[in-house]
Design a protein around this nucleic acid. Structure first.
Lengths: 180, 180
DNA sequence: TGTAACATGTAACGAGTTACATGATTGA
DNA sequence: TCAATCATGTAACTCGTTACATGTTACA
């Protein structure tokens, strides 16, 4: 149920890698936001291999250090990853899935994005209502008033929502063009 | 170390509540983003009471249902919460802290916000560099190319960063005015 | 001489999730 | 009659974090 195994599949879908490589990528890559630790990494990799979603491509051993095990994603792995990308989920998970969106047909992606957009628009409407009721009930909120902080957090929620909607629009336009 | 206890203190800083009340608020409030389950709620409340950060204000018992325990934050609790709000942390934690920003002196808040803003600006510069190097290396990215997805995720990171910076600016202007 | 990089892995712990248990009352 | 609401709490489990263990080579 956790995203960890899909994160590993997401990386392996692009190129064969060892566990160590994956950790390095997660450290350095600015375009991929995820942190993993050894305790999750290696057992999860073993489980993926058991399930036939990845396979050992190379086993580079040098005498003085542990063998470097390079894994490769299988066809079943690609299918599994594709299915996951199409599944609904929270915004955070959705963003993670976008990293593997290149595997999915553009038409399907567009419909997913349009649904996400709708979801955010509904949330935005709720925020708007809340903010309005704040302003009505309290004409002036000084910075030591609890509702000042509530308004601040609400403002952030509102801005984030708008930001997400705009991003969805940009993505849809990119996909309709077919390239960037 | 976890935020859970501070979340409970954040709610109690505004008004005395029972554990059940807190859960209800987290469900319904649009201005507060946090989910808690009974297994964390009740033991954490007990621990807060042990530590003298909250105290029992009322113990409303009706024969046919469990006693309703209404808690009240103590002076020590307020101090503890205030200290937490001033501490540095991740953006997510920072947002949580903003819900109790009304407890903190505006000058201190402004300096915290300015630091957060700087942090985001540095991140944004990194994103900008990455995006530029993408564009240079690949003139055209079709939607089935892995780097198309990388660019999509990067674009989101960039937009979020800008959104955060703009929000910081808005907050600073609110605080300098002293009210909204 | 010490520490960072390489490369795998385990152990112990803390945090979080789902599900369950109680039990009268209110409303569909 | 069935489910939901009120209100507390426990049990079992998964997930994630920090720290440790191995052992050579390269570099400051």
């Amino acid at each position: 149920m956790s995203s960890t195994k899909f994160v590993l599949l997401s990386l392996l879908a692009r190129e064969p890698l060892s566990g160590y490589d994956m950790k390095q990528q997660m450290k350095s890559r600015v375009d991929f936001f995820y942190k993993i630790n050894n305790n999750q990494l290696y057992p999860t990799l073993s489980k993926l291999e058991e399930d036939g979603l990845v396979e050992l491509q190379a086993y580079e051993r040098e005498s003085y250090r542990p063998a470097r095990k390079v894994y490769k994603i299988t066809d079943a792995g690609i299918e599994c990853l594709k299915d996951w990308v199409k599944e609904p989920g929270s915004w955070e998970e959705f963003l993670l899935k976008q990293y593997s969106s290149w595997l999915v047909e553009p038409e399907i992606l567009i419909s997913i994005l349009e649904e996400k957009k709708l979801e955010q628009e509904q949330l935005l409407a709720e925020f708007k209502g809340k903010t309005a009721s704040f302003r009505e009930q309290n004409e002036r909120l000084t910075s030591d008033h609890p509702l000042f902080s509530s308004a601040a957090v609400l403002e952030m929620g509102y801005r984030f929502g708008r930001c997400r909607i705009e991003w969805c629009d940009t993505m849809i336009s990119w996909l309709k063009k077919g390239e960037i």
